[in-house]
Design a protein around this nucleic acid. Sequence first.
DNA 1: CTGAAAGCGCTTACAG
DNA 2: CTGAAAGCGCTTACAG
Lengths: 349, 349
Amino acid sequence: MAKERKKTVASLQELADLAGVSRATASRALNDNPMISEKTRARVQALAAEHSFSINRQARAFRLRRSNLIAVVFMLDVKSDQHMSDPFFLEMLGGIADALAERDYDLLLTHAPVTDVLGLRNGRAFQQADGIIFIGQGEQHDALNELTEEDTPFVVWGGPVGEKRYILVGGDNHGGGHAATRHLLDAGRRRIAFFGNTRNPEIAARHAGYAAALAERGLEPDPELTVDVPFDMPHARDVTSRLLETARQFDGVVCASDVIALAAISTFAALGVRVPDDIAVVGYDDVALASYSSPALTTVRQNIRWAGRVLVESVLGLVNGDDVTDTQLQSELVVRDSSMRRTGGSAPE
Amino acid sequence: MAKERKKTVASLQELADLAGVSRATASRALNDNPMISEKTRARVQALAAEHSFSINRQARAFRLRRSNLIAVVFMLDVKSDQHMSDPFFLEMLGGIADALAERDYDLLLTHAPVTDVLGLRNGRAFQQADGIIFIGQGEQHDALNELTEEDTPFVVWGGPVGEKRYILVGGDNHGGGHAATRHLLDAGRRRIAFFGNTRNPEIAARHAGYAAALAERGLEPDPELTVDVPFDMPHARDVTSRLLETARQFDGVVCASDVIALAAISTFAALGVRVPDDIAVVGYDDVALASYSSPALTTVRQNIRWAGRVLVESVLGLVNGDDVTDTQLQSELVVRDSSMRRTGGSAPE
DNA sequence: CTGAAAGCGCTTACAG
DNA sequence: CTGAAAGCGCTTACAG
C-alpha cells in the first residue's frame, strides 16, 4: 500500500483475465449478481479493489441506457429578472446534491434562462439525464404539461395550478401567506401591502393566503398595494421607492421572498422609514441570511434542504417506475425583529 | 409544423436510410466534416432537423471518450464548517454554468464535503468529466498537487501557495486585504481585528495584506485580534460574542468574507455595539446581498461571474491541450456605510 | 466524395 | 454457476 499503487486495470476484460474468469462473470461479480458464487464474487471484487479498477461509466451508461444523472433546471422568468443568486436556489441545490449523492446519482446543472421550455426536448437534460427536477414553474405551466409526453420523467417544485399533468412538490404557500398576514394583523397593522409577482403560481397562492387573512378581519385588499416587485435586488429597490412616493401609506408588507424583503428594508432605511416601527416586514423562505440581517427578518420558513430530498425521492421514484404523488411541505412562521416593535408586539397607531 | 411533429428518428442509421446515404456519411454530415459535399451535408442536416433527430450522446461520449462534461467540486473544510450556502458559491456557480453553456459543455456538480481529495480519483468527476474545476483549496494543497498525476485536467480557484503544480485562478487577495485595512486606517481606526481562518491560502494572503497595511503605518498586528472565525453563521456569531467579552477592545475589523461580516454586524447589534460608530466593518467578495444589508457593507469586490468565465476558459484550454497559465483577477474596494460614520469619513477618537 | 467494416467497454439472454 | 456471442449507437481509419 502506502506509496506503492498497483498497476491499475483498465477494462473489465483485463480484470477478468487476472481473475481467470470470463468477462461476463467479472461483470456479474462486480454487480453482485446472485447468480455468481460467493467465492468468485469475493475474488473478483478483491482484485478490482486491489488494482483500483472502476467500471467505465460511459460504456455502462451507453449499454444500459441509464446515466445515473439527474438534471436540475432552474426556471428563471426573464420578465421578473429573478436571479440564480437568490440564496434560496443555492440552499435547494445543496439539498438536492446531498440527497442525490446518497443515492449514487450525479447532478447535471442546466442553468440557461429558460423562456421556451419546449426547447429543452432536444437539450442535454432530456437526453442525458435519467430524470429532471424543475425548480419553479415560471409562467410555463402549459409547456410543462406538454413535456409529460416525453420519455424522461420529471418533477417540479412550484405552486398549485389547474389541469396539471406533472408531479408537483411545493410548500404550503397559501398557509404561509395567510400566517404572515395574520401575524401583521395581530401586531395591529391594518394597511398591509404584498410585494411579489402573482403570475408565478407559488406567489399567487401566497397572495391568496394574504387576501384570505385580510378577509377574515373584514378587510379588503387594496389592489394598489399588491405590487409586482421583481426578485432582483436593484429592481426591487426602484419599485419600492416609487411606491413610497406615490401610493397611499401602508404600515406592513408581506414579501414573496426574503430577498425582496431585504431589498425593501434597505430601501425603507434609505428613505428614512423605520422597520418595524413605521412599516413591519415579513419575508418568505427563511434563507440563512434572514436571521442575520438588521433587523432580523420575520419570515415564513420553508425547509429547503428537506424539500431537496423530497424532490430527489420523487424523481427517482418516477425513474424506477414507482407510483409517485404530489407532496406539500409544511411552512412555519418565524417571528423576528422586522415585524415587532422591540418593546413587544403592541398595536397602537 | 405547428402541432404536427414528424415522426422522430431514433438513430443515425434511420437518418441515413432516410437520406439515402450510409451511416458513416450521415455521421460526417452532422459533424460538418469537410470531406462531405455541401449538398449531402445540407440534405442530411435538413432531414435531421425535420425529424428532430439528435445524436445519442451516451454513445457518442462512449465512442469518443469525451463527455462534454466539466465537474465542479466545492472544497469544503469540515473544520471551518463553511457551507455551500454562502452566496459566493452560488454566484460563482452561475458564472461557471453560463460560460460552460456557451461552449456547449454541461456542468456536473459534486458537492460531497471533501476531506480526502485523493478519494476523488475513483469518483465520478475524474471518470466522467473531461475536466474539473475545484472551488477553493481547503487545506488540501498537497493532495491537489498529487492529483496532477491523473489524466483528467483541472484548475483550482484559490490563493497562492508554494510548490504548486496545478493551474490556479484567484483574486488579488493580498491587495484586497491591504486595501480594506488601509481604508480603515484612513478612517482613523487603530485597533483593527481580522476575522478568518488563515490556514486557507486565500485568507492567509488577505491576512498578509492586512498585516502589511498595518506595518506601513508602524502598527504591529495584535495576534489576539486575528481570530479564526468559521464561515458558518451560527459559529461566527458565537466566536464573535466571545471575543467581545474577553479580548481587548477594537474599533475596526477586516473580515474574510461578507457572510462573516454580516454575522459580525448582527452580533455587534445584539450586544449594543454600533456599526460603524463603535466598530467599522469591511467584508470580502461583494456578494449581491452586501449592498442591501443595514448598514450597507463596505467590502472588497471580486468579480465572481467573470471569475467563473476565466475558470471555464482555463479548464477547457487544458482539455484541448493548450498552454494555460495562472490568472490573478483584480479586486476593488467598495466603500459603503459599515465603515464610515454617516456624517463623513472623519477620524476622531 | 462515399461506404463497408471494425471496434469503443460493457451487459445479458441463451446455452451448457 | 459460468462462458461464448451478440449488440447497444456511434466514429474513423481504410479502401475505392
